[in-house]
């Protein structure tokens, strides 16, 4: 089952890359996808059931739109700072806590943080994220305003990956 899912995903990528429905190419692609997913167990999903829950895909699409919107906002923010002659930055590294457990979810959260307003993930250690923030507002206590960085994404990623 696990091998089957990664074979299907790899096969879809193959079809998009070759862009042909010639039976010979499809057959070759199927064999290559099957061999690759057989010899590399690391890319297989740990819980195959997750792939058959439509709710995850709906949230994934909503999340994509939310994420692109956040990314555009962050870019306008960075562009303003770069163009401003005074260079208004107030940087520092803060740490925030996440509820997410699985590695895939943590990777998606770290990537999302890096691409959104003024934040860059430096390191992940267990449930703690160390985040370089271009404009640190006051957050002396760990559980205060810094958590806002992750909370917007967490509620979507929790449904998609957990």
């Amino acid at each position: 089952m696990r091998v089957f899912i990664s074979t299907v995903v790899l096969f879809i990528v193959w079809v998009i890359l070759t862009q042909s429905f010639d039976p010979q190419e499809l057959f070759t692609g199927l064999i290559v996808a099957a061999v690759v997913s057989l010899i590399s167990p690391a890319i297989a999903s740990d819980k195959p059931k997750k792939w058959f829950q439509p709710k995850r895909y709906v949230y994934l699409i909503i999340y994509l739109f939310y994420f692109i919107w956040e990314m555009i906002k962050s870019n306008i923010d960075v562009a303003k700072r770069v163009v401003n002659p005074k260079l208004p930055i107030n940087p520092g590294i803060v740490k925030v806590k996440t509820k997410l457990k699985t590695n895939a979810a943590k990777l998606a959260l770290a990537n999302s943080i890096t691409l959104t307003p003024g934040t860059l993930t430096v390191d992940i250690h267990d449930e703690w994220f160390y985040i370089h923030w271009i404009d640190v507002s006051n957050c002396d206590d760990v559980n205060r305003s810094c958590q806002e960085i992750v909370e917007g994404f967490e509620k979507y990623l929790e449904v998609i990956f957990e």
């Binding site: 960075v78 562009a79 940087p91 590294i93 890096t114 691409l115 860059l120 430096v122 370089h132």
Partner: peptide
């Protein structure tokens, strides 16, 4: 680190 902020986000 600040260079990375500008470099990664805007170029991506």
């Amino acid at each position: 680190y600040n260079r990375m902020q500008a470099g990664t986000k805007a170029t991506t």
